[in-house]
């Protein structure tokens, strides 16, 4: 049985994700797969995504992966990355597309008019590079990572959770936006842990060791009805 399934729906490069997990957990079998059966049988699931969300939704459905993704998000340690975070929400402004609706809220574009820093300099979109991630809850995936550590981002859209208690971390660009969400067995991030050097590798190591079903209450703040 696959220990960690990295879901491949044909959108972008998943080699970085699988290599980084193999690096932190050489004993685990990491499979990049587009086979719903393999996803169903995996112990843990990583749900990445690159490019445009409407394309990601379409390609995921074209491969018949929706059911396996939803199943994993309901009952297995589940890590969403980048568009894999955005797709969990109700909808996105990008192409005005519906998401999986596993988390309440929507995905918005960085508004052109707001993209100015404190000194009046233009801020570029995509938001690309290393930004500070401030932790807004305790969580096993933050273990050993200082709040304010920098992670690598590249995105033009950000999530706006309707349930603030699910926000696990935020960044500033120039306003505060949520860049990590946690809900039960789901942890999902806008940045790329697989490209974020020491802090990112630590997060991936934390993910493969995470046991969300056992003793949840001791590890995270209670999460009120964020799903279903």
């Amino acid at each position: 049985m696959t220990d960690v399934a990295v879901i491949d729906y044909g959108m972008g490069n998943l080699r970085s994700v699988s290599k980084a997990i193999e690096h932190v957990a050489p004993q685990l079998e990491v499979t990049v797969t587009s086979d719903p059966e393999v996803v169903m049988r995996a112990s843990r699931v990583v749900f990445p995504g690159q490019g445009a969300m409407p394309d990601c939704m379409r390609e995921m459905d074209a491969r018949g992966l929706r059911e396996a993704v939803v199943d994993a998000a309901r009952r297995k340690p589940f890590l969403g990355i980048c568009i894999g975070l955005q797709m969990l929400f109700d909808s996105s402004e990008e192409g005005d597309v519906a998401g999986l609706g596993l988390l309440r809220g929507k995905v918005r574009r960085f508004p052109h008019d707001a993209m100015v820093d404190a000194n009046g300099n233009k801020l570029k979109v995509p938001h690309m590079g290393w930004n500070e991630v401030h932790q807004s809850m305790q969580h096993p995936l933050w273990e050993g990572i200082a709040s304010g550590s920098r992670f690598y981002f590249v995105h033009s859209y950000f999530t706006e959770p309707a349930e603030p208690q699910s926000i696990a971390g935020y960044s500033l660009y120039p306003f505060s936006f949520s860049c990590a969400v946690a809900s039960g067995n789901i942890f999902a991030v806008q940045f790329h842990p697989e490209k974020s050097h020491t802090a990112g590798l630590r997060m991936l190591a934390n993910f493969v060791a995470w046991q969300p079903m056992a003793g949840v209450a001791g590890d995270t703040r209670p999460l009120a009805g964020a799903m279903r």
């Binding site: 938001h127 590079g129 930004n131 120039p174």
Partner: peptide, 8 residues
């Protein structure tokens, strides 16, 4: 503090 300038 926000996005860092990159050195490549």
């Amino acid at each position: 503090m926000g996005l860092a300038k990159r050195i490549i």
